[in-house]
Design a protein around this nucleic acid. Sequence first.
DNA 1: CTAAACTTTGACATCTATGTGAAGGTCAAG
DNA 2: CTTGACCTTCACATAGATGTCAAAGTTTAG
Lengths: 144, 144
Amino acid sequence: MKIGELSRRTRVPTRMLRYYEQQGLLSSERLPNGYRDYPESAVEQVELVRGLISSGLPTRLIGTMLGMDGVEGEELARTCSRNLAESLAEELATLESKIRCLERSRDTVRRFLARTRHAEVIGDARLVLEHVPSSTPAAAGAPR
Amino acid sequence: MKIGELSRRTRVPTRMLRYYEQQGLLSSERLPNGYRDYPESAVEQVELVRGLISSGLPTRLIGTMLGMDGVEGEELARTCSRNLAESLAEELATLESKIRCLERSRDTVRRFLARTRHAEVIGDARLVLEHVPSSTPAAAGAPR
DNA sequence: CTAAACTTTGACATCTATGTGAAGGTCAAG
DNA sequence: CTTGACCTTCACATAGATGTCAAAGTTTAG
């Protein structure tokens, strides 16, 4: 598929898709006319990259991890140097620390919401946006 | 405590501590001479803020959540408007999505490392940095 | 008193992820 | 052929987090 469709399906601006490619996070073939041509799997790939970037991982690290993702056999794993393994172990610790931190915040927000008179919005965040009850007319606009 | 000690204890540059204060993520009293004076609890606070920022949360959101952290009674929870609750529910969904994404990456890295001949570095990331084995002399510098 | 080590505010630089627009090539519909 | 919707690269602008430096007041050690 061409970049426009990938952009529509992932809701990521074409500008960013090209940027990710430039950063080595996404790859594409080229059509005879020079247009980028993406495989179906690019959709999922882009979603993963987006999630990781939004979680504060530097693109450099993301590139490293994506490189590992496809490696099924033992070949690359065996060629992994001691130093790379140590770097990755460090990053693993970073990931775990980020996860713990986010979990803590998630719990804080969740507990707060539970004590609110609007507890029912929990776990229903997206649904809530659809059927905005007309009980709050003045604030019905853009809440963010 | 003064800013220098807080900086030393959290390993966060004073520049950043002042920045966080300016962004409303950290507060301080002032000593008679104008110096900032932090309570003991600031250490933990800074660590939390750091974790959240490194996880890609915007300071605005962090400020909101920190505001909720201290609220034990029902007062503020009751005054929480429907719209704020909905915004927070949205952010809750965002947090959960980030967590899932990071967990996925964590598992990817972990699986990769497990298949490596250096599997023992897992869960030992910091220790590993101490006793760097002299078996890899050329790469012993800065691995990142 | 002086020097070193803090502190203050403020300005400017940098990096990364983005937005935006220009100038131009490709292609399909009319 | 022309128009409109794509695509290409290149470049400049912005916003947030952070580094760094300057000028100046404070405090402590000597």
